Simulated assay, not measured.
Amino acid sequence: MAKGKVGKTVESLGDYLREQRVASRLSLRQLAELAGVSNPYLSQIERGLRKPSAEVLQQIAKALRISAEQLYIRAGILSPDDGVGGSVELAILGDTGLTERQKQSLLDVYASFLALNAVSDAEFAADGDVAAEPVATDPPADTQDQDPQKITTEG
Score class of each variant (00 low, 15 high):
residue 1 M to P: 02
residue 2 A to D: 08
residue 4 G to F: 00
residue 5 K to Y: 00
residue 5 K to N: 05
residue 5 K to P: 01
residue 5 K to T: 00
residue 6 V to H: 09
residue 6 V to A: 09
residue 7 G to I: 05
residue 8 K to I: 00
residue 9 T to R: 10
residue 10 V to Y: 03
residue 10 V to K: 03
residue 11 E to R: 14
residue 11 E to M: 15
residue 14 G to F: 01
residue 14 G to A: 03
residue 16 Y to P: 01
residue 18 R to A: 04
residue 19 E to Y: 05
residue 19 E to G: 03
residue 22 V to C: 00
residue 24 S to D: 09
residue 28 L to Y: 09
residue 32 A to L: 08
residue 34 L to W: 06
residue 34 L to P: 08
residue 35 A to G: 06
residue 39 N to I: 04
residue 39 N to R: 11
residue 39 N to F: 07
residue 40 P to A: 01
residue 41 Y to K: 06
residue 46 E to W: 00
residue 47 R to D: 03
residue 48 G to S: 01
residue 49 L to C: 03
residue 49 L to T: 07
residue 50 R to E: 05
residue 50 R to T: 10
residue 51 K to N: 15
residue 52 P to I: 06
residue 52 P to D: 08
residue 55 E to F: 05
residue 55 E to K: 11
residue 57 L to A: 10
residue 58 Q to H: 10
residue 58 Q to W: 07
residue 58 Q to F: 05
residue 59 Q to A: 15
residue 59 Q to I: 00
residue 60 I to N: 01
residue 61 A to R: 05
residue 62 K to Q: 12
residue 64 L to E: 07
residue 66 I to M: 14
residue 67 S to Q: 13
residue 68 A to M: 07
residue 69 E to R: 15
residue 70 Q to R: 12
residue 71 L to V: 06
residue 72 Y to M: 11
residue 73 I to K: 12
residue 74 R to E: 11
residue 75 A to E: 04
residue 75 A to P: 12
residue 78 L to R: 10
residue 80 P to S: 08
residue 82 D to F: 05
residue 82 D to E: 11
residue 83 G to I: 02
residue 83 G to P: 07
residue 84 V to E: 14
residue 85 G to T: 09
residue 86 G to L: 12
residue 87 S to A: 12
residue 87 S to K: 11
residue 89 E to Q: 14
residue 90 L to E: 02
residue 91 A to I: 01
residue 91 A to V: 06
residue 92 I to Q: 04
residue 93 L to P: 01
residue 94 G to D: 07
residue 94 G to C: 08
residue 97 G to D: 04
residue 99 T to N: 04
residue 100 E to P: 11
residue 100 E to K: 03
residue 101 R to P: 00
residue 102 Q to E: 15
residue 103 K to L: 02
residue 104 Q to L: 12
residue 104 Q to H: 07
residue 105 S to I: 11
residue 107 L to R: 05
residue 107 L to S: 11
residue 107 L to A: 13
residue 108 D to V: 07
residue 109 V to C: 04
residue 109 V to N: 07
residue 109 V to F: 13
residue 111 A to W: 07
residue 116 L to D: 06
residue 117 N to E: 13
residue 118 A to D: 13
residue 118 A to S: 13
residue 119 V to R: 14
residue 120 S to G: 07
residue 124 F to T: 10
residue 124 F to H: 11
residue 126 A to T: 06
residue 127 D to H: 12
residue 127 D to S: 15
residue 129 D to H: 10
residue 131 A to S: 14
residue 132 A to E: 04
residue 133 E to V: 15
residue 133 E to A: 15
residue 133 E to M: 12
residue 134 P to Q: 11
residue 134 P to I: 14
residue 134 P to T: 12
residue 135 V to N: 03
residue 136 A to M: 08
residue 136 A to L: 13
residue 137 T to P: 00
residue 138 D to N: 09
residue 139 P to T: 13
residue 139 P to C: 09
residue 139 P to N: 08
residue 140 P to W: 13
residue 140 P to M: 13
residue 141 A to V: 13
residue 143 T to S: 09
residue 145 D to T: 09
residue 145 D to W: 14
residue 146 Q to P: 00
residue 147 D to H: 12
residue 149 Q to K: 15
residue 152 T to C: 08
residue 152 T to Y: 06
residue 153 T to P: 01
residue 153 T to E: 04
residue 153 T to F: 13
